[in-house]
């Protein structure tokens, strides 16, 4: 009983310690850019370009649904319809653009990274890289984390544009708010710091999702079952830490 309790209490700290160690080693491998630059390009395509369609789809629907729900809640002759634009746009820029993209990437990219590295671990491919004299952390983890940090803000910006566009289009076509009024509302309450905050958030989310997924995959144990476990843990832990980071950033920067 004591041993189980001790294990439950110590496990998160041990994991945090190993995660920090991995990050430390990864930062140490950053200067060896030559060995992984090709891999970096591949990862940027896989994480960024390949995720674009699903992120766009989710963002368009998020913007559209926000418009419809806002108009449903605020329908009153006393409230100008431009308020819809002033709610939808900051919602996308401050929260939905980054969080929707984050959840999609946690599921799509996080799970893929963990499964890929986990399979490489259990089939001794990571040992093979090390045995050749290659820094496996530099070769496998650094390009994925850098690609996440670089591509997430791009996906976020695209998600914001598409989400706002989707909201505006549905508002106009559904007769909730004409485009002109939507834009007027958006302009009226626009804060220049909002997109900067969103980009800061997307950089942090990109780092969290890729680094946690790499950690889960790199230390996978136990064959196919272990790979499955690592994949699930990567997606779940990425989402949880993404939400925690979301709250901390909002509380400290806004």
């Amino acid at each position: 009983m004591i041993a189980v309790t001790k294990k439950l209490l110590l496990n998160p700290f041990q994991a945090l310690g190993r995660y920090s160690q991995l990050l430390f080693k990864a930062f140490g491998a950053v200067p060896e850019f030559g060995t992984y630059k090709k891999n970096l390009w591949e990862q940027m395509v896989r994480i960024g370009v390949d995720s674009m369609p699903i992120v766009m789809l989710a963002a368009a629907f998020s913007g559209a649904v926000t418009t419809v729900q806002t108009s449903y809640q605020l329908v009153s002759p006393l409230i100008p319809r431009s308020i819809i634009g002033s709610i939808v746009v900051p919602s996308m820029v401050l929260e939905l653009g980054a969080v929707v993209t984050g959840f999609i990437l946690a599921g799509r990219v996080g799970a893929r990274i963990a499964a890929e590295l986990g399979t490489m671990r259990v089939t001794e491919q990571i040992d093979a890289l090390e045995a050749m004299g290659l820094n496996s952390i530099g070769y496998l983890i650094v390009p994925r984390v850098i690609a996440g940090i670089v591509m997430f803000p791009i996906l976020y910006i695209a998600a914001c544009f598409v989400g706002i566009g989707g909201g505006m289009l549905v508002g106009h076509m559904g007769g909730f708010v004409p485009m002109g009024e939507f834009v007027d509302g958006a302009r009226e309450f626009f804060q220049p710091f909002d997109p900067i905050f969103g980009i800061i958030k997307s950089l942090v989310f990109g780092f969290i999702i890729t680094s946690i997924s790499c950690f889960m995959g790199y230390y996978t144990k136990g064959g196919a079952e272990g790979v499955g476990r690592a994949t699930t843990q990567a997606a779940v832990a990425s989402c949880v830490f993404l939400l925690i980071a979301d709250l901390i950033l909002a509380a400290t920067l806004l």
Binding site: T123, E124, Q125, D127
Partner: peptide, 13 residues
């Protein structure tokens, strides 16, 4: 200086 043949081959998929 080493070449290693792993049990399952460990070829990169």
């Amino acid at each position: 200086h080493f070449g290693v043949l792993f049990q399952g081959g460990a070829l990169f998929d």
